[in-house]
Deep mutational scan, measured.
Amino acid sequence: HAATELTPEQAAALKPYDRIVITGRFNAIGDAVSAVSRRADEEGAASFYVVDTSEFGNSGNWRVVADVYKA
């Protein structure tokens, strides 16, 4: 099962156990969220919340930071 994305309210009520950072070329924010979901799932997380997204220069590469939560 894939890790689910939390709302800001849900994330605020929970304590993350880790923070992950992924970088890559994403065509849309949805693609980045899917990549975070896969990584969170690999780490055994039940859910995640994207904290920050930023573009690296003009290369089209993105850096996505997310907190991950157990259950």
Rank of each mutant, 00 (worst) to 15 (best):
K70Q: 08
T7Y: 04
K70D: 07
D18G: 15
N58G: 13
A35H: 06
R25V: 10
V65K: 02
G57N: 08
A13P: 06
R38H: 08
A11S: 05
K70S: 08
A46M: 11
V21E: 06
V65L: 05
G60Y: 04
Y17A: 01
T53D: 02
R25E: 08
Y69Q: 00
K15V: 14
A40M: 04
G30L: 10
G60N: 06
S54K: 13
D31A: 07
S47R: 05
N58Y: 09
T4M: 13
I22E: 00
F56K: 05
P16E: 01
E9C: 13
R63F: 08
D67L: 15
G60R: 05
T23L: 11
D31E: 12
A71P: 11
D67V: 08
A46Q: 11
A35R: 04
F56V: 13
N27Q: 11
R25S: 10
Q10D: 06
K70V: 08
T53S: 12
D31S: 07
P8F: 14
R39E: 04
D41F: 15
P16K: 03
E9P: 06
R63G: 02
F48V: 02
G30W: 12
V65C: 06
F26C: 05
L14E: 05
D18R: 14
W62V: 06
I20N: 01
N58E: 14
E9L: 09
Y69I: 02
A46E: 13
N61Y: 15
L6A: 03
Y17T: 03
D52W: 13
A40D: 02
A13E: 12
G24S: 03
A13H: 13
A12P: 03
N58L: 11
G44H: 06
D52Y: 14
Y49T: 03
V68R: 00
A66D: 00
G57E: 10
L6T: 01
E5W: 08
N58W: 08
D67H: 06
R39F: 09
I20F: 05
Y17L: 03
S59N: 12
S59D: 14
S37Q: 15
V65G: 02
S47E: 03
L14T: 06
K15M: 11
H1W: 08
D52Q: 13
V36K: 02
R38W: 06
A3E: 02
A12L: 10
P16S: 05
T4H: 13
A3W: 04
S47F: 15
R63A: 06
T4D: 06
V36P: 04
V36G: 00
E43T: 12
G44E: 04
K70W: 09
Q10Y: 04
P16H: 03
R25H: 12
W62E: 02
E55R: 10
R38I: 12
A13G: 12
L14K: 09
I29Y: 14
A66I: 13
V65Y: 05
S54A: 12
V36W: 00
G30T: 13
R19L: 04
A35Q: 06
A2S: 13
A3H: 03
V50F: 03
A28D: 15
G57P: 08
L14F: 08
S47Q: 08
A40P: 02
D18Y: 10
I29Q: 08
G57T: 07
D18T: 12
H1Y: 09
D18V: 09
L6V: 02
A13F: 12
T4K: 14
Y69F: 11
A45M: 10
A71R: 09
V50D: 00
V36R: 02
A71G: 11
W62P: 00
W62D: 00
D67M: 11
I29S: 06
E55N: 11
K15D: 07
A35G: 03
Q10N: 04
R25P: 09
V65F: 05
T23I: 15
F56N: 08
T7K: 07
A2L: 11
W62H: 03
